[in-house]
Design a protein around this nucleic acid. Structure first.
Length: 874
DNA sequence: GTTCTCACG
DNA sequence: ACGTACGTGAGAACA
């Protein structure tokens, strides 16, 4: 049986409008109703897979019902100004999706739906009505169901005749009678005064319809009979108003309602206009790709044998330039198997399918070594680091990479994090792609990499980013790949012991907390904890989150003097965090082949230019408290007789600030070489350096951090524990003493507003559209990031340069030392003990002299048998 | 998938 | 009158 879905356009648009926040495009169009309607529509199409589909809209404000009753819908609020202009947009989306719109002057969408249902039933077509209006229930039959929104736009309830009866106690055909008796506030249908929902249902269960009620007045209570006698005509009129039209002058031709493929080009166009990024991405996945379709492109072929591969390699050597990509299907390059390699040169592309047999595969790969490892064969890829890891793992080298679309796109706009080639094809070539699922997909992908790179390199040169790309990021990807491949050894015995110890302690703590609470609950659920603390124990609410009570560490500390649970909870939280994230989490990520953890350093994630680390994140291993530090003891050298070395920049961000702001006082502070926070304290609190107490220093430290983050009096007050007024005075005084810093901040924000972006020392860019927001908070946030990004980002530039330099020095000096980790301002190495001295001086000078700033850069070096027990080296 | 909490620089 | 420090990633709960 064929299926038809018909949507009540007006009703659903209203629903969407009120359910979603007022979304707006950067160009000022309101789009929340369009967005809500579109997502609802797509979901229904996906779920129902209808054969026929249409959307009905009201047309004309005056309908035939007004002829009968002038006040029909008189109380209805006017459509809001933010919604009205969204209707034409919805219709544009529908046109692009090739979904017919049904409208008829002076009829409501409901009436058209009624007509369509009637016609469909005659033809034996199954119908599903989608609406937010329960009036639609009167159309429900065995053949026709109704999907009515319950709450918001995603909670829908499906009604069959039985369902209607169960829920309302009447049949679908009695809906109009019901409204005739009860009336309807929202449509201003009067009904019978004094008859509400209960009475109406009771009457209809007894007499089936309004007419029969009126014909049997003698069987009613005298009061009810009088009521119906007086308002009988009004009840009949109300019923007629509530009854959907029976004779709509329209002919339904089902051929016009057949589902069709959307006009993807038009749809992309309108989604782009409306800035529906997620929906764009979704249709991208849905669209059959037209590039290099394997069945029509004569340039395409699939390579499976050695002779074929030899021919290909000859061709590549002749061309001297190609794009490539190993298929990984989202699997980490540290563990993905080699299955398919996509290659593109000129206008051609091929996929190489590798045999599973290790020996045969090895032979095929060995053939490729010449072109992959040959530095003179120019290569482009998307994520050079991942490709290098794949190659190295299979015994191949990779040299001669001249383009990386992922890295390039990130440098052009650091707000794109880990962009996919599909996203870039849309952004830079206006081309929507959906690569084939089989081997041919890799070939298509390679070809797209080549095309996108041609555009990106132009853009990089235009924005003066080519140096940053070729001299820093691209070579850095090799260093990072080697760090990841090397991995870090963990003392598993130690972790297992910790895990057992923590389990035991947690068991005791949990029991204590339950006993104190007087009941068991899910101790990991902030919500349940909130109920215990604030409802059962009536402790004062310190802070709220969007959804309820806050129970974070700050709150628990304040509650600690009032009850025993909060401090126990703090301890519990600390221990579970250690156990689940670090002790157990790290163990589970140890690679079985190497016995080490191999993090991934993401080079294209952060908006500022920093790296990030995942699976595991080795940039947030505990250090601040003693118990947490124990985790670091489990990080050990991977060879006997080796040690670890940590080299960290001292105050690199403040030094960068001194350099960029050229503030003479801050520069002088650093040239003095003593503790910077003490000097800051002496300066802003107007005391001699010897008289700076620990507390004054702590406050000055807070101010120094605050300056880097984009200070506010509120934030500073919270951090150092003084009043907001006090904090405001500190800030004022700081800017008085360091006027160059103040000027730098103002100048940076002004320039950012003008250009739309800020820059680091190495010209890395971050665009800041928030600076132009009409929302004050968003704008203030933009201003803080505007001043923080050049500082954080330049510090990132500097340590990246240092990594390159040290990596090169290590190679040239043939040292055995390996760089393992970068944690934003520090580098971790493992080394044979005898290399300690040469390495310490190599690392120190590498890091300190990698760039000439207005202030010296200082590096602290420590070594030890693990990452915890470290001692300073002079 | 989003929210809360918490680990790091 | 309102909600704030900047940049990240992970685990658990809950919808």
């Amino acid at each position: 049986m064929k299926k038809l879905v018909i949507l009540d356009g007006n009703s659903l648009a209203h629903r969407a409008f009120y359910a979603l926040p007022l979304l707006r495009t950067t160009t000022g169009y309101f789009t929340n109703a369009v967005y809500g309607f579109t997502t609802m529509l797509q979901k229904i199409i996906r779920q129902e897979q209808p054969d026929y589909l249409a959307v009905a809209f009201d047309a004309g404000r005056i309908t035939f019902r007004h002829e009968e009753y002038a006040d029909y819908k008189a109380h209805r609020k006017a459509t809001p100004d933010e919604l009205r202009p969204q209707f034409p947009l919805i219709k544009k989306v529908l046109a692009a999706m090739r979904i017919p719109v049904l409208e008829l002057e002076s009829y409501e969408g409901d009436d058209l739906i009624s007509e369509v249902v009637r016609a469909a039933e005659k033809k034996g077509i199954q119908v599903l009505i989608v609406s937010g209006d329960r009036d639609m229930l009167q159309l429900v039959t065995e053949q026709t169901k109704a999907l009515i929104t319950r709450k918001g736009i995603s909670d829908l309830e499906c009604f069959t005749p039985e369902g209607v009866n169960e829920k309302y106690g009447i049949t679908p055909s009695q809906v109009a009678d019901y409204k005739g008796l009860k009336g309807d506030q929202s449509d201003n249908i009067p009904g019978v005064p004094g008859i509400g929902a209960k009475t109406a249902v009771k009457l209809l269960q007894q007499f089936h319809s309004v007419e029969e009620c009126l014909a049997n007045l003698d069987q009613l209570t005298p009061k009810m009979a009088a009521l119906l006698r007086e308002y009988g005509d009004q009840a009949l009129m109300s019923k007629r108003l509530a009854t959907l039209a029976q004779d709509v002058p329209v002919r339904i031709d089902f051929a016009d309602l057949k589902m069709e493929q959307p006009d993807y080009e038009a749809l992309i166009n309108i989604f782009q206009q409306l800035e529906f990024k997620l929906l764009l991405k979704n249709i991208q996945e849905e669209i059959p790709s037209d590039i290099a379709a394997p069945d029509e492109g004569e340039d395409f072929c699939l390579i499976k044998t050695k002779p074929e591969l030899v021919d290909l390699i000859e061709e590549l050597k002749e061309t001297g330039e190609f794009a490539f990509c190993f298929e990984r299907n989202g699997i980490s390059p540290h563990s993905a198997a080699v299955s398919v390699l996509g290659v593109a040169w000129g206008d051609s592309c091929v996929a190489i399918a590798f045999p599973e047999d290790a020996k045969q595969q090895g032979e095929m790969l060995a053939l490729l070594d010449e072109v992959l490892a040959g530095p003179d064969y120019v290569k482009f890829c998307h994520d050079a680091k991942a490709e290098l890891i794949m190659c190295r793992r299979h015994g191949l080298d990779l040299k001669g990479i001249k383009g990386d679309t992922m890295l390039g796109a990130y440098l052009l706009n650091s707000s794109l994090s880990n962009p996919e080639i599909e996203d870039l094809s849309l952004k830079y070539l206006d081309q929507v792609v959906n690569f084939a699922q089989d081997e041919t997909g890799a070939a298509q992908r390679a070809l797209m990499i080549k095309k996108v790179w041609a555009v990106l390199i132009e853009a990089l040169q235009r924005d003066d980013l080519a140096d940053l790309f070729y001299k820093l990021e691209l070579p850095l990807s090799v260093v990072l790949a080697e760090m990841e491949i090397q991995g870090v050894k963990l003392d598993l015995t130690r972790l297992e012991e910790m895990s057992r110890r923590l389990s035991k302690q947690l068991l005791t703590l949990t029991a204590d907390i339950y006993a104190l609470a007087g009941e068991g609950f899910n101790i990991n659920s902030p919500r349940q904890l909130g109920q215990i603390l604030f409802e059962k124990l009536k402790l004062p609410v310190i802070k709220r989150t969007k959804t309820g009570y806050s129970t974070d560490a700050e709150v628990l500390e304040k509650l600690a003097p009032l009850h025993e649970i909060p401090s126990k909870m703090l301890e519990y939280r600390q221990l579970t965090k250690l156990k689940s994230t670090y002790v157990d989490g790290l163990q589970s990520l140890v690679n079985t082949r190497t016995g080490k953890v191999h993090t991934t350093f993401n080079q294209t994630i952060t908006a500022t230019g920093r790296l990030s680390s995942t699976e595991p994140n080795l940039q947030n291993i505990p250090v601040r408290d003693e118990l947490g530090r124990e985790i670091r003891s489990a990080f050990i050298p991977s060879e006997p007789g080796w040690i670890l070395m940590a080299a960290d920049y001292s105050q690199i961000e403040l030094r960068v600030l001194a350099h960029m702001s050229r503030d003479s006082r801050l520069i002088a502070d650093f040239q003095h070489g003593e503790d910077i926070h003490t000097r800051t304290a002496a300066t802003i609190f107007g005391v001699a350096q010897e008289d700076v107490t620990a507390d004054l220093r702590r406050r000055a430290k807070g101010i120094n951090f605050g300056i880097i983050y984009g200070i506010t009096d509120y934030g500073l007050a919270r951090d150092v524990g003084v009043s907001r007024e006090e904090a405001a005075r500190y800030i004022e005084n700081y800017f008085l003493q360091y006027p160059g810093v103040k000027r730098f901040i103002e100048e940076t924000i002004r320039e950012a507003r003008e250009k739309g972006y800020v820059q680091t020392l190495l010209k890395r860019r971050r665009y800041l559209p928030d600076l132009l927001s009409s929302n004050r908070n968003v704008r203030a946030f933009g201003e803080r990031t505007a001043m923080n990004t050049p500082i954080q980002g330049s510090a990132a530039d500097i340590i990246k340069m240092a990594m390159l330099r040290i990596h090169k020095d290590l190679q040239e000096k043939s040292l055995k030392t390996r760089l393992l980790l970068q944690v934003h301002d520090e580098l971790i190495f493992e080394l044979p003990a005898e290399e300690l001295e040469p390495l310490a001086s190599l690392v120190r000078s590498g890091m300190e002299n990698v760039i000439e700033l207005a202030v010296p850069l200082k590096v602290g070096i420590e070594t030890g048998p693990n990452w915890n027990d470290m001692e300073g080296v002079e």
